[in-house]
């Protein structure tokens, strides 16, 4: 930065004494989720990595940086199936705040390389049959604790992880679409034809936490942006929302963070105070996505 150099030196050293620029909170939490608590100790597991300046190097798993593109499929597959220990991710959607800005849908589709008609996240216009009004409802995969889609998969291609996230391994999916039929929330979508940018994505190593590159003839759906969570970042949709609709967090901590305001609140309080509900609880699917009811007055 230019202006830093322009300032005179004595003032700088003086100011630095103030104990400034507090330890970076964001970068700090990133290390928490690497799966390796001690970032200085080498684990002995090496993976091939494409660094930000396009160099292919081999680094220790413990020294991975968020920007690195891992080139090691088997490592990514193993990591993707294991999930992040000690976490149970949940989302809270505040319907009263949704104004159908659709920034979430856009961010989602670009992150997951989806065609315009494919939705991991779909903002629906819902009719209220009693009040004759309508409201906007973003609908993602509910990451059910009793997932009907996972029950029916014949090959373990879709599975639930220890952190509660339901993922798809599109290296294994046989494209039978039983999961699509079984999901009562219509949360799944299928690559009926060659996926978007398939020629450009040909060399990218498949990461099931992002489910990119997409593959023809396989199922895809919301992954709670598991790739982001690993780095302590909020899901793509959550941080893209301009209206503060989404909260995301860890049920074990009882804390959820709003994607727009970054305010972190107690999950249990938020749900209780706002009469939260889940979608079709009578089906017994036990979703991990909670909804706060839409505003009463607005049509």
């Amino acid at each position: 930065m230019n202006m830093a150099n322009k300032n005179d030196k004595s003032r700088r050293s003086f100011l630095q004494k103030l104990g400034i620029a507090g330890a970076s909170t964001v970068a700090g939490s990133a290390l928490l989720l690497q799966g390796c608590s001690d970032s200085n100790k080498a684990s002995g597991n090496k993976v091939k990595v494409l660094t930000a300046d396009n160099k292919l190097v081999e680094v220790d798993v413990a020294h991975l940086k968020p920007g690195d593109k891992i080139q090691d499929l088997s490592y990514l597959q193993k990591r993707g199936r294991e999930g992040i220990p000690g976490k149970k991710f949940v989302m809270v959607v505040d319907l009263a705040k949704c104004k159908n800005a659709r920034k979430c849908m856009k961010a989602c589709q670009s992150a997951h390389q989806l065609k315009p008609e494919m939705h991991h996240l779909n903002v629906l216009e819902m009719e209220d049959p009693v009040k004759k009004t309508s409201y906007w409802m973003p609908k993602t995969c509910q990451h059910c604790d009793n997932p009907p889609c996972v029950s029916v998969c014949p090959v373990d291609a879709t599975f639930k992880r220890q952190d509660g996230i339901v993922l798809i391994d599109n290296e294994r999916c046989i494209g039978c679409r039983f999961c699509v039929a079984a999901c009562p929330y219509s949360a799944r979508t299928f690559n009926w034809t060659e996926p978007k940018n398939s020629d450009k994505m040909a060399d990218v190593t498949y990461d099931m936490e992002l489910n990119v590159p997409q593959k023809k003839g396989t199922v895809t759906k919301c992954a709670f942006s598991a790739d982001q969570l690993r780095h302590g970042k909020l899901p793509y949709c959550v941080s893209a929302c301009p209206n503060g609709v989404y909260y995301f967090g860890d049920q074990n901590e009882d804390l959820v963070t709003n994607g727009t305001t970054k305010k972190t609140v107690r999950l249990s309080h938020l749900l209780e105070e706002n009469a939260a509900y889940t979608l079709m609880p009578e089906l017994g699917t036990k979703p991990s996505v909670y909804y706060l009811p839409p505003r009463e007055s607005e049509g």
């Binding site: 930065m1 202006m3 830093a4 300032n7 003032r11 700088r12 100011l15 630095q16 103030l18 400034i20 620029a21 970076s24 964001v26 970068a27 920034k103 970042k233 909020l234 941080s239 893209a240 929302c241 301009p242 994607g259 727009t260 305001t261 970054k262």
Partner: peptide
């Protein structure tokens, strides 16, 4: 600001901005 705006601050500010401000 009691702090000198240096590269570290800008970097941290960028993360916070992208998480909380970019959407609008």
């Amino acid at each position: 600001s009691p702090f000198l705006f240096d590269d570290d601050m800008v970097l941290e500010g960028r993360v916070a901005y992208e998480n909380s401000c970019t959407s609008c």
